[in-house]
């Protein structure tokens, strides 16, 4: 059942008061997926959140209150989500523009605060872990990379 939340644009927003749910349809050219994710994430703690996409590529966000909610409460929920969307979109753009500054400050902050590892930390470090994905085998030694595989090794497996 579709209800109208007074004051909110009907083509983009549906409400189902019986289910305490609202659906917002978002244009991904205005709100890219990472912006929708950023806005949706904190709402997971407060609502049930489901995303979907229609044939036109619009992303719908369904927020369902965890308890019964009045139309007023649902309207507030939509308003807060819309604010968070706008804020996330804005933050994404600002972060892109100020990336060098933010990364430099963050690197200095953690470099300064963490300092070098202690001897105990180095001893406790598990060097057997794969440090990072290395699909091109850059971190492998020449011998490891080009040595002949035994016949019984499975196809697609790399060097040990």
């Amino acid at each position: 059942m579709s209800d109208t939340l007074w004051g909110l644009p009907a083509p983009q927003i549906d409400a189902d008061l019986g289910e305490a749910a609202v659906t917002m349809r978002l244009d991904p050219t205005l709100y890219p997926l990472e912006v929708i994710y950023a806005a949706a994430y904190p709402f997971i703690a407060r609502c049930w959140v489901v995303l979907d996409r229609d044939d036109a590529g619009r992303v719908s966000v369904v927020l369902t209150a965890k308890q019964a909610a009045t139309a007023e409460q649902l309207r507030a929920l939509v308003g807060e989500f819309a604010n968070e969307l706008l804020s996330s979109a804005c933050r994404r753009e600002i972060t892109r523009q100020n990336r060098a500054l933010i990364e430099s400050v963050t690197t200095q902050a953690f470099g300064g605060a963490m300092g070098p590892p202690s001897l105990e930390e180095l001893e406790a470090f598990d060097f057997t872990d794969e440090p990072f994905d290395d699909p091109l085998g850059i971190a492998q030694s020449w011998e490891d990379k080009y040595r002949k595989k035994p016949r019984d090794e499975g196809e697609g497996e790399g060097a040990p």
């Binding site: 804020s87 600002i94 500054l101 963050t106 953690f110 605060a113 963490m114 930390e121």
Partner: peptide
């Protein structure tokens, strides 16, 4: 917990970025 585990904790990293005003709408 070790010192570097705490100071380099993912929550602390997220907080440092969240509280950097150069990434904050309005503040910029």
């Amino acid at each position: 917990a070790g010192y570097r585990d705490i100071v380099g904790h993912p929550t602390i990293r997220a907080m440092a970025i969240a509280s950097n005003l150069d990434g904050q709408p309005d503040c910029v």
